[in-house]
């Protein structure tokens, strides 16, 4: 669709704000199989490299007085550790590497996606959906393993009057199963919308009369998107912690 559309609209405004999200093979033009090396592979690999560079290469000195890179790694470590401990409780600390993995992957993927010409892996519902379902399954399994049937107490609001409890239980149950949906669409939608808006303004920049405004707008929205990239990664991580707290301590 992309190539055809480009061909059709020669000379006029070119709006293809969603072309940037197309998953395509890195080498050749064949079909996208599950094993094909695509732009998804490239940008996820770059995220892995960036994380390794910051956390492994940056801390190679094991310095008592940290270098700048090591310091950033330590700050992120301390920040995430404290978040897990404060939000999910002390016994959730064993899930810290898991949450750190999710948080750092989303954070780095978001920021790498902001590079011009890059591909934002976290703008895809397939990616955020898997992340959210992984969290949902983890939380549910941990909840039942830790508390047995007592985990169902999460849906039975014992502080409410007895007649209301079944109604609340249904509402709680629905909200519990909606969690992975909101969890994934919040992240994917935010990233996708921001990138699409930037592309739309980039299209307007082709018109001389409003191009200064368009460029200014892109600059402003880019700043906003940098903020969104950090905030959405943080929101995803902290919600994971909140859900984990429910699994470990299901009583209201």
């Amino acid at each position: 669709m992309a190539t055809e559309a480009h061909g059709d609209e020669t000379g006029g405004l070119e709006f293809h704000p969603l072309d940037q999200f197309i998953v395509k093979p890195l080498f050749g033009d064949g079909a996208v199989h599950w094993y094909t090396i695509t732009n998804v592979t490239l940008w996820m690999a770059l995220a892995v490299l960036a994380i390794a560079a910051l956390f492994v290469f940056g801390s190679r000195g094991r310095a008592l007085v940290p270098s700048r890179t090591q310091s950033i790694g330590e700050v992120l470590y301390g920040f995430t550790y404290k978040m897990v401990e404060d939000v999910a409780g002390k016994d959730a600390v064993k899930f810290f590497p898991y949450i750190m993995t999710l948080f750092m992957f989303i954070l780095f993927a978001n920021f790498l996606g902001l590079l011009p010409m890059s591909f934002a892996t976290t703008s895809h519902i397939a990616v955020t959906g898997v992340l959210a379902i992984a969290v949902f399954l983890t939380v549910t399994i941990v909840g039942f393993v830790k508390n047995g049937a007592g985990f169902l107490g999460l849906f039975w609001v014992s502080s409410a009057p007895l007649p209301l409890r079944p109604v609340l239980a249904i509402i709680e149950l629905i909200s519990y199963f909606v969690r992975p949906v909101s969890h994934s669409i919040r992240l994917g939608g935010n990233i996708m919308a921001g990138h699409a808006v930037m592309k739309v303004f980039a299209g307007f920049a082709a018109i001389a009369a409003i191009s200064p405004f368009a460029v200014l707008s892109i600059t402003a929205i880019y700043g906003l998107e940098v903020l969104v990239a950090g905030v959405q990664a943080y929101v995803f991580a902290i919600l994971t912690c909140v859900y984990l707290k429910d699994a470990l301590h299901p009583s209201h």
Binding site: V23, V32, H33, W34, Y35, T36, T38, V40, T41, M44, A45, A47, V48, I51, A52, F55, V56, P97, Y98, M100, T101, L102, M104, F105, T121, H124, A126, V127, V130, L131
Partner: peptide, 17 residues
């Protein structure tokens, strides 16, 4: 494709961490 590479990525990051 996306899910496969995501899982690979997450496993690598988790391993490195």
């Amino acid at each position: 494709n996306q899910i496969f590479w995501l899982v690979v990525t997450l496993v690598i990051i988790h391993f490195v961490f």
